[in-house]
Design a protein around this nucleic acid. Structure first.
Length: 567
RNA sequence: UGGGAUGUAGUGUAAUGGUAACACUGCAGAUUCUGGUUCUGCCUUUAGGGGUUCGAAUCCCUUCAUCCCAGCCA
């Protein structure tokens, strides 16, 4: 027999991989080891947009046998907190990446950065400016007009040295003086118009405490930190493109390693999502969601709590690809990725969200049978479990119609359906309350159909999930949906908050579940058959009060069809 | 309107001078003890206009569109 040639499905290279492979091939990388970095500012929680940067930086290092440093970009003590530093590390680990011993803080380099600044001043390449913030803005010029040089630009070196020293000693008020690089006030690139290097801030830093009252700016700190750590490829998002000349300036300062180069890629946008720290912070602060880890949040901790697997997120990022075009990815792709991953791994269980009582009139009273149910049809090794069956069960209200619509093949008077893993039942009688609501359905079962097939091989079109009444356990189920109704929140209304989905969380407090669910743990991927993927809530779930979060619904072509008919 | 970038199906990403493709979405159908999964098929693409070339998504010119930049934020 011919050997089967396995075609490895290799994704084509993106532009960053091309650059790296080219650099490697042409011996432009020291020790032939690429070194990347992920440099979050610890002023908020990581979201799925960051996951892209994480996957790119850690992923490239992994792919090319290099390494990736985790560096906290902590140069603004007014905004940054230790709480965020810890959360960031957790989230990266959860995604499945590790920085090993290469964990740094920009604040590790404060002393070096300070000495380099001193040298710049001595070389006449930096000066202390006493222009106020407003004046500086005026002097900077505009997008179309060049800036003007500050009167302090030619301050004698000795004076600059003395003033900078006084700044460091805390002898000057915040905002009164600033250290600037002497670049080019006429540059068409505003970032090159004598960028600020150091500002005075009398703020306590989470790591350096009150050691410093002058703090270096991003444009100065970032490239030099990269150089110190021997970063070879510094990959960041597009908005830093205009800063690259400043980056190149900083890495060409005397005594600085000029290995690092900056490359920019487009950040991630997803329809129906907001991914701006400012907007996310607003949602949290104004209690429009219940915290950073609210399962509706696009934060990694939120998605994790919601039941997303790290694998599905990494797959999503990999499918989105890397390019320089600003783009908006369809959230359907994200849902596709979770469903695909969870379909393979989720334990199947039965839960009835909106119960309707079914009495099986010919089933022996008080009899209970324990039936075998497969745990995952996608995984034959997944085994089976026992589920109880009795003469009184719940099915979904949706699975019964007194007067069926065209195409409906669930339960209705006279129709036979299969109860998953159990028996065939036929509806004979409908019981209603005074208002005419169906409160109970009476059926007969076929003892021959045990296990879901009959000796005569007759077909039934519908299969329903169900839960036996006496053994059912009561659960709270949180039905999460998109946080925003529109694809691009705020674009048509002018305010993203106007597009909030007020039904993004629907709590069902009396869901009937099969008894095996009492052992469910947060972290276990579940599928409520015919409904969706769920996970026990990591904060509120307990054996006494089980709480499950809906990660994502199953695809539902029937309800889609119905929706279309009703339009 | 200065500078920097970017334009390929509805969305995202390939094709790097040689037959425009893959995935998602959408639409049909088959299979199915989940109206799930799986499988099949279909729809739809190089921003516009010139040029170079036997041959252009790719090179050149030009027009247009979109995004980013005037923090002592990152």
């Amino acid at each position: 027999m011919e050997p089967v040639v396995e075609l490895k499905e290799e994704r084509s290279m993106n532009f960053l991989e091309r650059i790296i492979e080219d650099d490697l091939a042409n011996n432009r990388v020291p020790d032939n080891t690429i070194v990347t970095r992920f440099p979050p500012e610890p002023n908020g929680y990581l979201h799925i947009g960051h996951a892209k940067a994480i996957c790119i930086n850690f992923g490239m290092a992994e792919k090319y046998n290099g390494r990736c440093h985790l560096r906290m970009d902590d140069t603004n003590p007014e905004k940054e907190e230790q709480e965020y530093i810890n959360a960031i590390q957790d989230d990266i680990h959860w995604l499945g990446f590790d920085w090993n011993d290469y964990f740094y803080h920009a604040s590790d380099y404060y002393q070096t950065l300070y000495e380099i600044a001193l040298n710049l001043i001595k070389d006449g390449k930096a000066y202390v400016d006493s222009l106020s913030a407003e004046q500086m803005k005026e002097y900077r010029g505009t997008l179309t007009e060049p800036g003007k040089e500050s009167p302090d630009r030619n301050r004698p070196i000795e004076d600059n040295l003395r003033l900078f020293e006084e700044m460091r000693q805390g002898k000057h008020a915040e905002g009164s003086l600033i250290l600037r690089a002497k670049l080019d006030m006429a540059s068409p690139n505003i970032n090159m118009r004598d960028p600020a290097l150091y500002r005075i801030k009398f703020a306590t830093h989470p790591r350096t405490g009150d050691t410093w009252c002058i703090y270096p700016m991003y444009d100065y700190t970032h490239p030099i930190s990269d150089a110190i750590e021997g970063i070879t490829h510094s990959m960041c998002s597009l908005e830093f493109e205009d800063h690259r000349p400043v980056y190149d300036w900083a890495t060409s300062i005397d005594g600085i390693d000029h290995t690092p180069h900056q490359y920019e890629f487009a950040r991630l946008n997803i329809t129906h999502f907001v991914l701006s720290k400012r907007k996310l912070l607003h949602l949290v602060k104004h209690r429009l969601v219940l915290g950073w880890d609210d399962p509706r949040m696009p934060t990694l901790c939120g998605m994790r709590r919601r039941g997303y697997s790290p694998e599905s997120i990494r797959d999503f990022i990999s499918r989105v690809g890397v390019a320089k075009v600003e783009s908006v990815v369809d959230y359907n792709l994200l849902e596709f990725c979770v469903r695909e991953d969870l379909n393979k791994r989720a334990q199947r269980v039965m839960a009835v969200l909106d119960p309707l009582l079914v009495v099986i009139t010919n089933y022996p009273k008080d009899k209970v049978e324990w039936l075998d149910a497969e745990n995952n049809p996608e995984n034959p090794q997944g085994g089976t479990r026992l589920i109880p069956f009795s003469g009184e069960i719940y099915i979904e209200k949706e699975d019964f119609m007194e007067v069926p619509v065209k195409g409906y093949h669930r339960l209705y008077p006279g129709n036979e359906i299969r109860l998953k893993h159990a028996y065939y039942i036929t509806c004979n009688e409908v019981i209603k309350d005074d208002q005419g609501n169906v409160v109970e359905v009476r059926c007969t079962y076929d003892p021959e159909s045990k296990g879901g097939t009959t000796p005569d091989q007759r077909k039934v079109k519908g299969t329903s999930h169900w839960v036996s009444v006496p053994q059912a356990i009561d659960c709270e189920v949180r039905q999460y949906d998109k946080l925003f109704l529109t694809e691009d929140p705020g674009v048509s209304t002018g305010n993203y908050l106007d597009d909030l989905n007020h039904e993004s969380l629907v709590v069902l407090s009396h869901v009937k579940c099969e008894p095996s669910l009492k052992d469910a743990q947060p972290g276990e991927y579940l599928q409520f058959i015919r409904n969706g993927y769920y996970m026990a809530d990591s904060k509120d779930h307990s054996v006494e009060h089980p709480v499950f979060n809906r990660t994502v619904t199953l695809k539902d072509s029937w309800s889609k069809k119905m929706k279309k008919i009703h339009q």
